[in-house]
């Protein structure tokens, strides 16, 4: 398996062989591009609609769900931020996501290095164990994991969520780092050894900088999945003061009847931070998504 990393490439031009008149071809291309933009707009429409409705009162929404009434106000958001204790949840989520990501980065890259360089039966076995973890649904282990956290007296703590999310993320991280390291030659590490550096110094001064592009992609991919996870926080956390944003959105609204003025601002507040991150760091997210596709 090879990995695709962010790279700049010039846009591909379609082959310029055609007998049809140039004008007609150009017209068709413009029409096709407009069509694609229209499809994109249809896909984005629910998000735009959510933003619009979240700024309106219930009575406006009930009469004209699609129309722009002009009575937009941030009033709903003020109420939602207070209801959710938004600042607190945001802090919790950053702490949990950051803690798990750091843990996965260090342990994952430490383990990936020998797995990429030493092809023995036991390293391959450990590697296969990690890969197998990708197919195990979280529900098979969730009850024993819950009991384990209970026995360790960790239920309803940040630690329980950080450890669970980190362990669940490790298979992908190990796979990702290992295939990245396999694609780069070991020369730098050998040079460091000639200079007399031990394993830990080599790790810190050679491997860590070498993995930097892969790390950026991985951190963002993990942030996305941990930030958005409901199941682990739902099972592990009970007190309102420790909730992550995603759990907060769920517990604020629940499954009962709601008013749109209450529902949608809550959902927007839960979603907004990651959408902003996505718009800024998109290329890393795309690199993470396309990690499994071979180039050759």
């Amino acid at each position: 398996m090879t990995l695709t990393f962010p790279r700049t490439r010039s846009p591909l031009q379609p082959a310029p062989v055609d007998t049809a008149p140039l004008r007609r071809r150009r017209l068709r291309r413009v029409a096709s591009q407009c069509g694609l933009l229209l499809v994109t707009l249809i896909v984005v429409a629910p998000i735009l609609l959510m933003l619009k409705v979240s700024l309106e009162s219930d009575t406006d929404v009930a009469s004209h769900p699609l129309a722009l009434t002009g009575h937009l106000s941030l009033h709903n958001y003020v109420a939602a931020i207070k209801d959710m204790d938004y600042g607190r949840s945001l802090g919790n989520t950053v702490l949990i996501t950051g803690g798990a990501a750091v843990l996965v980065m260090f342990t994952g890259s430490l383990a990936a290095w020998p797995m990429a360089r030493i092809a023995r039966r036991w390293t391959r076995l450990v590697y296969q164990l990690f890969v197998a973890g990708l197919t195990v649904p979280v529900f098979v282990m969730i009850t024993p994991l819950y009991m384990l956290m209970r026995d360790l007296k960790l239920l309803d703590s940040y630690t329980s969520v950080i450890l669970s999310e980190a362990a669940l993320s490790l298979p992908f991280a190990v796979l990702f780092f290992t295939s990245f390291l396999r694609s780069v030659p070991a020369e730098l590490e050998e040079a460091a050894a000639i200079d007399g550096a031990g394993p830990l110094r080599t790790y810190w001064h050679v491997i860590v900088p070498l993995l930097r592009p892969a790390t950026a992609t991985l951190v963002i991919t993990l942030t996305l999945s941990i930030w958005n996870d409901l199941v682990i926080p739902l099972v592990m956390l009970t007190s309102d003061s420790k909730q992550t944003i995603t759990l907060d959105v769920y517990s604020t609204i629940g499954t009962h009847a709601y008013s749109t003025a209450q529902l949608l601002p809550t959902v927007v507040l839960g979603t907004a931070p990651l959408l902003v991150v996505f718009l800024v760091l998109q290329r890393y997210i795309v690199a993470g998504i396309t990690a499994g596709v071979g180039k050759s």
């Binding site: 450990v126 990690f130 282990m141 024993p144 384990l148 450890l163 980190a166 362990a167 669940l168 298979p171």
Partner: peptide
């Protein structure tokens, strides 16, 4: 083996063990 230990321990304790226990 030492380099692989932290990740493997974390994974074994919180994924493999609960899965086997499950």
């Amino acid at each position: 083996a030492l380099l692989m230990l932290p990740a493997t321990a974390l994974y074994a304790l919180f994924i493999l063990y609960p899965t086997a226990k499950g």
